[in-house]
Write a protein that binds this DNA or RNA. Structure first.
Lengths: 331, 331
DNA sequence: TTGAAAGCGCTAACAC
DNA sequence: GTGTTAGCGCTTTCAA
């Protein structure tokens, strides 16, 4: 048989569709007897309310969408786990999609917010220009998390990437580094802020940055190796390297170690993110911990605000505390 | 102003709603002039068709949902990337959700298929019993990928986990191992199959398995370390260890190395998955490569079949070829 | 407490 | 080639 509708349930239960709907939505004004009859009919027919019909009437979906370029980072999956849990607590379902850095794909997904497929949007790493993000956010419920541009109009939840980079660079200098290099991720908003923090810390100590290298495209383990190799080509090699992510730091450490250098004695290496790779590296990486799960929870909370409180499109910036994790890759 | 509707567009363009709808859906029978007027009105009003209304009428959503316990594995994100790309090629959007191993959460997400929020479902690692998966799949469009129970009624896309484990165990024996241990993941369907393949390879050579250890709960880097420590407690330690995943193998290698053993000279270690960690490990891991991206693509292709061809709920099992990747952690 | 009925925004069948 | 209209399945008034 075709999919049962409220009509079918009503007929089977011997009541009107109104009553069925009231039972479905937990309305108080239903007699015990009617409620039982309806529930029996629902079970008998394996009835489920059709989402599109319900959404159309109610004008909301109780769904949110979380967007990122890719899902292969532990920070992202932790953030989205936080979003998912917080969403579930409020009766929402959170869906995830990867844009793959493709603008068209991203547009299509953002359109899911515009066309009412979802009530809200969490954006991790937008491909579109910041202005476009802001335009969407002006009219609809959007929150950014982690990768947020450093502008006045910016809004969203993240750590203070610049400060965090500043702090870990400071740690490198406090433990004796004089000649500091960085493997930077200029392709990411957070990466650019981390580079700024790095530079700032050096400047304050009257130091000039040694080499600042950045890869094209993929900023991963192999990029770390490749960039580290370049680092070693210099006549005077640095005595410390700050890497934009743990995975790149792991690649860097690997290359240095293979070249016969000791980390941290000959050269100290610091990462960023405190992802699983930080502990898997030998030596284990000194890094910065982002409270990823918590950031996801907070991001959803702010999104909920925008979705439920009319005109609550406040352009606020929420910073969560980062934490220096000192391990064995620095002195 | 409130959200514009087809009515508004029609009024602005000076045509009827029928014509607007025809333009929206690329129907041929529209004059060039009308098409232009409509498109102009759409732009002017920033009109987007409301998804729920459209879905309700069309009785489909052009969306699929991909489910997994968690998203923190590279195999999963690659599989889902494949699903997403294949879906996009066919005009579908693929959404992802994590169940976190929570049965209620999973039910709620599977309900999205039952209530028409999505047209199809890709299941990676179900929490629900296999019978339940089969029941859903009998009536609706479902495909399993990777984690598929080894039963007659099973359906879905994966490698032959048992054979792959058999092959790598054979490799271990071919390179001299006589006393083989395994760190097995009994919590996963694939893990149980890999254990079977391991046992079978040994049996065929007239060998008995040495220790087979399996962790409770999380099967990750730390589990690998913990289990490796147990391995070393035995009076006669094994000369080879087959690990259910690369990450566990990485933990195992780390613990062995820290204990002063040389891998592979003193003890060989093999992983599974060829995930990024395999290359990041020192020594780099011998492992089995799963064609994750391709599996995702194939899974969507089969799902598309079920969604579009009536009664195409074929209970087929598709195996993709795995590949032994010999690196430095085995002799 | 219940039933009848309007209508959410859209598509497609039908008439012209 | 275009306009009119009947619903898709649901929720929610409004009366009774």
């Amino acid at each position: 048989m075709a999919r049962p509708t409220v009509q079918d349930v009503a007929k089977t239960a011997g009541v009107s569709v109104g009553t069925v709907s009231r039972v479905l939505n937990g309305s108080s004004a239903v007699s015990e007897a009617a409620k039982e009859k309806v529930n029996a009919a629902i079970r008998q027919l394996s009835y489920r309310p059709l989402a599109s019909a319900r959404d159309l009437r109610r004008d909301r979906t109780m769904r949110v969408l979380a967007l990122a370029k890719n899902l292969d980072s532990l920070v992202i999956s932790e953030v989205f786990r936080g979003v998912g849990d917080a969403a579930a607590d409020s009766g929402y379902v959170s869906l995830i999609a990867a844009t793959d850095g493709d603008l068209d794909r991203e547009q299509q997904l953002v359109d899911m917010l515009r066309n009412g497929s979802v009530d809200g949007l969490v954006i991790f790493s937008p491909t579109m220009p910041d202005d476009d993000v802001n335009t969407v956010a002006e009219q609809l419920s959007v929150i950014q998390v982690c990768e947020i541009v450093d502008a006045e109009a910016a809004f969203g939840v993240s750590i203070d990437d610049r400060q965090a980079a500043y702090d870990i660079t400071k740690h490198l200098m406090d433990t004796g580094a004089k000649k500091l290099a960085m493997l930077a991720h200029r392709g990411a908003r957070s990466g650019r802020l981390r580079e700024e923090g790095f530079r700032q810390a050096l400047t304050e100590q009257g130091l000039e940055p040694d080499q600042i290298l950045f890869g094209e495209g993929n900023f991963g383990f192999h990029a770390g190796r490749t960039l580290a190799r370049k680092l070693l080509k210099a006549k005077d090699r640095p005595d410390a390297v700050f890497c934009g992510t743990d995975v790149v730091a792991a690649g860097c450490v690997r290359e240095l170690t293979d070249a016969g250098l000791r980390v941290p004695q000959d050269i100290a290496v610091a990462g960023f993110d405190d992802s699983a790779q930080a502990e898997m590296c030998v030596p284990e990486l000194t890094t910065v911990r982002q409270p990823a799960y918590e950031m996801g929870r907070v991001a959803f909370a702010e999104l909920l605000d925008r979705m439920t409180v009319p005109g609550a499109h406040r352009q606020g910036r929420t910073f969560l505390a980062h934490e220096l994790v000192i391990r064995d890759s620095t002195k």
